[in-house]
Design a protein around this nucleic acid. Structure first.
Lengths: 348, 348
DNA sequence: GGGTACGGTGGGAGCGCTCCCAGCTGTGAT
DNA sequence: ATCACAGCTGGGAGCGCTCCCACCGTACCC
């Protein structure tokens, strides 16, 4: 029968006011207890806590957000097209890490998928209206206007990955250069003479770094710059196939390939098979990301693991700091690079 | 310089009140225009719209939510452990669909990952406090208390998949039985004589359905019930391996396997290789889900595709209906089953 | 012409909280 | 005993919106 109940009418969750009445104190005091203010006597605190327990009081976030002019929420922004390319695991591992780290806070996680320019505009409006306390940005392109917008409206933000070597916005990245380098060193260490690389789109800093890692390893092995064998692709399977074909026609005798992503490695692997090359006997193959794809390839793919979930967690930690210490404009923006690790499997 | 500004002080986003002043009308009228009420004259509406445009007014959702006692948000609840098992693509495709469908509304998407009982409790509190307008529940176990809680507090909810054949809560599911059946019919149609199945955990309805589909196909082919070859697993790769070993020792001559998930198929495939069985020559293999894993297997895996993204969209549509028409307790709860489709690849 | 109806409108009264200031105690210094 | 000054506390004044009621006018009816 419930019917339309609204406004007062006993029903519904207990409010701050009711807790105050029950505990025999004022609203302000209850608020202080709830928010862990130190300026409350133990007696009072206990009384309030008991009233809270008895009534099963849960603060109304919306009211709190309105009054305090906070949002109690952070947005995780995911540009869709990227996601598709970047293979799923990266994306969901980030979410997992973010969710885990946020669970201890009482911040909500808002998920924002961006596909169209219209949606991007909508997000910009939304952010401008300060409806969240901070923003987590995943896989940002160098020309993305969002980071600058955020900076302008003084909205705390953290990127996963950086747009360039001189990133100004706080970020959490993994050690792409180091990871790539160790992958190629591994290949060389296993006696491979002619090691090629398939890169990601070189307008992305992450792709540049992985290429740089390849180069560093080749140099470190004391080989000529001429020994470099580079084909660039776009992080897709099809791109991996094309690059592999190109590489093969260029140097039919190559015996090692470092692909800057697992998915491209998968494409390369197909082309290698079509051309009668055995993996790892004829050509050793290493990928990057250590995604599910790597484990399910045949043979399972050696790959560079990045601590994706940990990246998500770290992003939240950094964002929390940014939100807290926003006033301090002089402080250095926190930027961190997480280590990577080579996971050896049968492909190398 | 900004400094501490709060409460009034000209700065900040324009408010309803300011728009009203500028348009020379009352607050109520602006509110009506914003919310598309028909009881406003065209003259007035135009004036208000112009003021809104000039001021760049964007309604404050928080204030709106507080006043209207709505939350303007829906929660997508994902029990973590499941997610891990269910392989990523399912999960992210659902999110993608949900996000897409929600983009047209002005509802926020809150993502809630549940790992621990503590987090579950926290969610229960949160939902009880009506901090969202509706809930999307992914991969619910038969013994999950959440759906009943939601029902009790009259919170609109939609499940992906159902807990049993007599699900009472609105849901969107895919045609597991039909999909499984077509997979097995395909195997039989290709001349396979001895077709086995690897099931998911049979306390999950989805696993039961896929098994039922297998049985239906075997029966339809006019084979004895004794022809059924069933090993149950748990949707994991390791489970798939174990089940495959068992099947192989039971019927070394089997020549077809339908695994109720791609990941289990991947496990089975490894065991087949270890035992010198070629795929598809000796044993044809079919999976379910058509995830990325299927495409990257060697040979690529024939699999039953479910319209996962569309499921996400459908869930939102159903939820929206539920939220809108909640008062009508007599109405039948919307429940829908989406078709599946066999995607043929080289493994069969 | 007075009544009735109704589309259109203004603005008071909240929603449940935080902020902040004034006030109230008790203590220690004078 | 007096004063200063803490440490706590109560409660008014919002935050920006929606709801709803009263009210205005005009059109229409008898």
């Amino acid at each position: 029968m419930a019917g339309t109940r609204r406004h007062g009418a006993g029903r519904g969750r207990p409010t701050l006011e009711e807790v105050a009445a029950r505990a025999g104190v004022g609203r302000g005091t209850v608020s202080r207890v709830i928010n862990g203010s130190p300026r409350v006597s133990d007696r009072t605190r206990t009384a309030v806590e008991q009233a809270v327990a008895e009534l099963g009081y849960v603060p109304n976030r919306v009211a709190r957000a309105l009054a305090a002019n906070r949002a109690d929420a952070v947005a995780l922004v995911i540009p869709e097209p990227e996601t598709r390319l970047f293979a799923e695991p990266y994306f969901s591992d980030i979410i997992r890490g973010v969710g885990a780290e946020l669970a201890d806070t009482d911040l909500q996680l808002l998920l924002t998928l961006i596909r169209t320019p219209k949606e991007r505009q909508r997000l910009a409006d939304y952010l401008s209206a300060h409806r969240v306390d901070g923003v987590l940005l995943v896989s940002v392109h160098a020309d993305d206007p969002l980071p600058d917008l955020l900076e302008r409206i003084e909205m705390p933000a953290v990127l996963s990955g950086r747009r360039s070597a001189h990133e100004t916005v706080p970020y959490v990245d993994s050690d792409n250069t180091g990871g790539a380098q160790s992958a190629v060193e591994h290949l060389i260490g296993r006696g491979r003479e002619t090691v090629a690389t398939i890169t990601g789109p070189l307008d992305m800093y992450v792709a540049q770094c992985r290429l740089e890692g390849y180069r560093a390893a080749v140099r470190a092995a004391g080989r000529e710059a001429a020994a470099e064998l580079v084909a660039s692709a776009d992080f897709t399977e099809e791109g991996g196939r094309r690059a592999m074909r190109q590489l093969l026609s260029q140097r039919p005798d190559l015996d090692g390939v470092f692909a800057a992503s697992d998915v491209m490695a998968a494409g390369a692997r197909q082309v290698l098979r079509e051309n009668g090359r055995r993996v790892p006997d004829d050509v050793a193959l290493v990928g990057f990301e250590d995604s599910a794809v790597a484990r399910h390839m045949d043979p399972p793919l050696t790959s560079v693991r990045q601590a994706t979930e940990e990246m998500g967690r770290a992003m939240v930690r950094v964002l929390l700091e940014e939100i807290a210490g926003r006033s301090d404009r002089t402080a250095k923006r926190p930027q961190m690079v997480l280590p990577t690790q080579l996971v050896r499997r049968e492909s190398s």
